[in-house]
Design a binder for these strands. Structure first.
Length: 732
DNA sequence: CGAAGAGTAGTTTTT
DNA sequence: CTACTCTTCG
């Protein structure tokens, strides 16, 4: 589109209103498929091109990297690149990280603080709880996370905690926070909580950031939690120049602290809030929308909203009972083949959606036997793979030597003579002195480790780590600084205004209050953060060589696995080098960032022609011509929650009802992914653990109020004949 | 200390 | 069925 053409374009009246409204706070209730991304991107374009907003003053927040990426791409097609410099389109978490990168001192953090992912955090909780009971571990971690997201500190949590389990969780919460601080680390929740709290507490800080964020757009607003809401409010201030876009019917993240009430709360906090509803759906045929409307009609409504479309009636929705999950998968695989042929469609026109990740397994198997190409969404992320964590542990340790989890991982993989016993001894001493493992290891004494052999192993390891730390700190052949030397320089990749920070405060214990003086940054690229560009690439290669990691892989695994893992490591290296270069980030900044990133970036070349397998959660925001919704049974969808079945107390009943409502919204999300056809299946029998269980069809199927379709399994003969042909083919 | 083997438990959703 | 954990042995 030629810059200078009039915006907005190709919008309906409501969408247009949402884009043009700039007189104050604005809430857009955008039903599924009603073009909300279009509204946000067009509004950004409008702000930048027509209203004279500078890009660096406009911030758009999303929940997922995927959404952020998509928005970025779409806005790039609308606006001249020169006007986009400094524009922020990112997740809440990445904004929080950016904030902390500048304001770390105010949070009591050092510059090279680490971000612990869920796995790291779980390790800490496990240690504190001294249990390996998986369920209990998850429960406690979850509870702590919910408290954090509700802006409750351990004292606050103690006030609301009930029962012995929660009392214990409070205890763990307290130690957990102390541990994070000792590691100079933050977890995912802190990335939002800390900025929100700091902004609330410090007026000058608030003023500075409010000057920076002059217009804020928030996507998926129904999924915000108390922290995120607070952050939004603090960033907007009384000026309240923001647009929030959301859909209460698609709120599916209550389990991680999101509160739909934030939608209604917005109207209370901002009486001048302009409410705009988008109800025209551009995605689905009427049959599908009607079913979706009927299902969601069973939920109590905050905002009334009825989707409609003019895309025609469409084919009826088909519900099929299956004998087992295996039969379901095989049947769907065959149907997919048949349907692709009959409809002259592509594989990527089909999606199979399910409640839980584990359901993908059976489906994958069935697709593989029929040689149907597929991609699975979610699953374990690239950065969760063992080999990736192994390498990253080293980098993290170099960036932040206080981070014990990284120390432990790096010290023990590959094996280098440091095992349980050694670590225990180091750990005990570290606890006694209140310092990190690295600090103990750096000058390990005979009193701590009696065995000379162990001491030698530890010393070798520390030498290696320190070697790379020195390399990382060195610039142009200068002498490496001593350990503990203050880190200088504040090079930010994002070019924010004004450079909110000077550098020297790190030298005095990190608590110095920052003055908003424009920092003289010339020649400040010393210190550990200075590692960038070509240096980064060289150090990475050397580090990997020093780790002897490839050898380790081939020693411990069979050829095939070792090969694939090594390939992953190389890919990580390439990615790190490329990113460091592209985003002009230092390697160690990048290492921080990695916890937040999924490697979607490589999928951007072109998406392959493959059937999409996805959880319902991960499917939000996407659309497919033909959707198969599988495992639609009581107990799975709605998922049966905790074990408060017998509990008839008012609170428990209410909690159960709310859970069902959320599951219903999940069903709604699933239905509204479909553009043209929707097939739903459920299993009479399902393997659960070691036993088969009998299943009932989900109540949501009845709630769709479909035309009383006769429960004939051979309802459509044509595809079935194709199925038989395929079966015969397979036999041979 | 570490590797190989046997047993056992596990299945919601994600930044 | 698998992936992970705990145990035992070298």
């Amino acid at each position: 589109m030629a810059p200078g053409s009039t915006l907005p374009q190709g919008l309906n009246a409501r969408q247009r209103e949402a884009v043009l409204y700039l007189d104050g706070p604005c809430l857009v209730l955008a039903g599924a498929g009603s073009g909300k991304t279009r509204v946000i991107t067009q509004k950004m374009a409008y702000l930048l091109r027509e209203c004279g907003y500078q890009a660096r003053h406009v911030v758009a927040l999303t929940f997922t990297n995927k959404a952020a990426r998509e928005m970025n791409e779409r806005v790039r097609t609308l606006v001249d690149p020169r006007l986009l410099r400094g524009l922020t389109v990112g997740t809440f978490h990445s904004l929080g990280l950016r904030f902390l990168r500048e304001e770390y001192a105010g949070a009591g953090l050092k510059r090279g603080f680490s971000i612990l992912d869920a796995t790291d955090a779980q390790g800490i909780v496990q240690e504190l709880l001294a249990t390996t009971d998986r369920a209990r571990l998850r429960a406690v971690q979850q509870t702590i996370s919910l408290w954090k997201n509700a802006l409750l500190d351990p004292d606050g949590a103690a006030r609301v905690a009930q029962g012995p389990d929660e009392a214990e969780a409070v205890r763990v919460y307290r130690s957990y926070e102390a541990t994070l601080r000792a590691y100079q680390s933050v977890d995912f929740d802190d990335l939002i909580r800390l900025p929100a709290q700091m902004l609330a507490a410090d007026e000058a800080l608030r003023a500075r950031w409010q000057a920076r964020v002059q217009y804020l757009l928030v996507d998926e607003y129904q999924d915000t939690n108390a922290c995120q809401y607070q952050l939004v409010r603090m960033l907007c201030g009384d000026r309240a120049m923001f647009t929030a876009v959301g859909d209460d019917d698609q709120a599916i993240y209550a389990w991680r602290g999101a509160t739909v009430e934030n939608l209604a709360q917005l109207a209370r906090d901002y009486p001048s809030l302009r409410l705009i509803k988008l109800e025209q759906n551009y995605r689905s045929v009427q049959t599908i929308l009607e079913a979706a409307n009927r299902v969601i009609g069973h939920n109590p409504k905050t905002f009334d909203k009825t989707l409609w479309s003019d895309l025609g009636t469409g084919e009826p929705i088909v519900v099929t009972p299956m004998d087992s999950d295996l039969a379901e998968a095989e049947s769907i695989a065959m149907r997919l083949s048949a349907a692709r042929f009959e409809r002259q469609a592509q594989w990527k026109d089909f999606a199979v959606l399910y409640r839980g990740n584990h359901q993908a397994r059976v489906m994958e198997q069935a697709l593989r036997t029929l040689r149907i190409p597929y991609t699975v969404s979610g699953g374990q992320s690239f950065f969760d793979k063992a080999e990736i964590r192994d390498v990253l542990a080293w980098l993290r340790l170099i960036a932040n030597e206080d981070e014990d989890p990284a120390f432990i991982r790096a010290a023990t993989t590959p094996r280098r003579g440091i095992g349980q016993g050694t670590l225990q001894a180091l750990g005990a001493e570290a606890a006694r002195r209140g310092v990190s493992l690295h600090a103990v290891a750096a000058d390990v004494s005979e009193a701590v480790l009696p065995s000379a052999r162990q001491r030698e192993a530890v010393r070798d390891f520390v030498r290696l780590v320190d070697h790379f730390r020195a390399r990382a700190s060195r610039r142009g052949g200068a002498v490496p600084p001593l350990p503990g030397t203050a880190v200088q320089g504040d090079l930010l990749a994002f070019d924010p205004d004004p450079p909110a920070f000077d550098a020297a405060d790190a030298a005095v214990g990190g608590q110095a209050v920052a003055e908003a003086t424009p920092a003289g940054l010339a020649g400040a690229a010393t210190g550990i953060d200075g590692l960038r560009g070509d240096d980064a690439a060289r150090v990475l290669d050397d580090l990997l060589a020093a780790m002897n990691y490839e050898r380790h892989l081939y020693d411990t695994l069979d050829e095939r696995q070792a090969q694939s893992r090594w390939a992953n490591v190389l890919e990580l290296l390439e990615w790190l080098k490329r990113k460091a270069d592209e985003d002009d980030m230092t390697l160690l900044e990048l290492v921080q960032h990695v916890a937040l990133v999924t490697m979607l970036e490589r999928a951007d070349d072109e998406e392959p022609d493959a059937v999409k397998l996805s959880t319902l959660h991960a499917s939000k925001g996407l659309e497919y011509p033909h959707v198969y919704l599988i495992g639609v049974e009581e107990g799975l969808l709605p998922h049966r929650g905790g074990d408060d079945e017998g509990d008839v107390s008012e609170a428990a009943v209410a909690a159960r009802a709310r859970r069902i409502e959320e599951e219903r919204r999940l069903m709604y999300v699933g239905i509204t992914r479909a553009q043209r056809t929707l097939r739903i299946s459920w299993c009479r029998k399902r393997r659960r653990g070691r036993e088969d269980t009998i299943c009932e069809p989900s109540r949501f199927i009845a709630e769709m109020g479909l035309q009383a379709e006769a429960p004939r399994p051979v309802g459509d003969t044509d595809p079935d004949r194709t199925l038989d042909r395929l079966k015969a083919l397979l036999k041979r």
